[in-house]
């Protein structure tokens, strides 16, 4: 093999792979709109009526059934998770003796720097600048790596669909919000435990409540920093770890993998150097034997 061949091939390979290395990112925190939306959940207000579950079904998986079916409280006996047909569920954490139970609505948290979007190899999960993390089935290949990556594991999958299964998760009611309506769950909440608005505003409101009613809340806004921040924010009067919220660090799981990944493949230097090194090894180890 001639030297020129070698160089040409090396270059071709490197170029191909380098293209991969600089492909558009899934959404850096810097891309986010200052007006991006979120939802603030005040768990001390939630009464566990499960109307949000109904509204979500009605919006995403109609028919939703009769409204009063939500009154069935027997579902609280086991801890549920969002499913592919029920994108939000309310769980009840029994209170301490004599205390009232706490109801926790769960759904996709719409992370600021979502691990699912970072994980998806075809960009089917995308953090929109306006806040929501959106799933695009037309790109999805069904590998479910997004579900492995999600620190909350709230996404679910249509396993029973043989040909066109989709990852199902809250999309923050893009259709409704574009029309200027509230997300379905927020709109129906009878006690307005859910507040939809600019994430910045919600954080301000949350901290105001913590300041003005310090004995009514624990001093923590869940989602302000968890997993690098989430669009859904929670206030509670009980420690979040007791309510089934995962205890997470303040950086996105994606930050670490992206650091590793981009550290190794930055400018494709490391693979190209390895390639060159191996080529050199091959030449050097060979040379003494070849030379007569």
């Amino acid at each position: 093999m001639s030297r020129r061949d070698f160089v040409r091939l090396t270059g071709a390979c490197a170029a191909t792979l380098a293209a991969a290395g600089v492909a558009p990112a899934g959404g850096e925190a810097g891309d986010l709109d200052a007006d991006r939306r979120g939802v603030l959940v005040d768990l001390t207000v939630c009464i566990g009526c499960r109307r949000c579950e109904w509204a979500c079904r009605n919006e995403n998986n109609p028919p939703a059934g009769e409204l009063h079916e939500c009154d069935d409280q027997s579902v609280f006996r086991s801890r549920r998770r969002p499913t592919s047909t029920q994108l939000t569920v309310v769980n009840r954490s029994p209170g301490p003796a004599g205390g009232r139970p706490v109801h926790v609505k769960t759904q996709c948290m719409h992370c600021e720097h979502p691990a699912c979007a970072s994980a998806c190899l075809v960009g089917a999960m995308r953090k929109t600048p306006a806040g929501p993390v959106i799933y695009d089935a037309s790109r999805c290949i069904g590998c479910r790596y997004c579900m492995v990556a999600c620190p909350f594991q709230y996404a679910s999958y249509e396993y029973d669909n043989a040909l066109t299964p989709q990852v199902k998760k809250c999309q923050l009611c893009g259709n409704r919000t574009q029309r200027g309506e509230l997300p379905a769950c927020v709109a129906i909440c009878p006690v307005e435990a859910l507040t939809y608005g600019r994430r910045d505003d919600l954080l301000r409101i949350a901290h105001e409540r913590l300041r003005s009613c310090p004995d009514q809340y624990i001093d923590h806004v869940y989602g302000e920093h968890e997993a690098g921040g989430t669009s859904w924010l929670y206030l509670s009067d009980r420690p979040f770890s007791e309510l089934g919220f995962p205890t997470l660090g303040s950086s996105s799981p994606a930050a670490l993998t992206e650091a590793i990944q981009h550290g190794i493949f930055k400018g494709f230097a490391a693979p190209v150097m390895l390639f060159g090194l191996l080529g050199a090894v091959g030449k050097l180890m060979h040379a003494p034997k070849e030379s007569p």
């Binding site: 009464i47 009232r100 009878p190 006690v191 307005e192 939809y196 608005g197 505003d201 919600l202 409101i205």
Partner: peptide, 20 residues
């Protein structure tokens, strides 16, 4: 966003006790 609507206020008022 800090003020519940009338509906929210009524519901909160009633249900915050009744749920207990």
């Amino acid at each position: 966003p800090t003020h519940p609507s009338l509906k929210g206020a009524y519901h909160r008022q009633c249900l915050s006790c009744h749920r207990d």
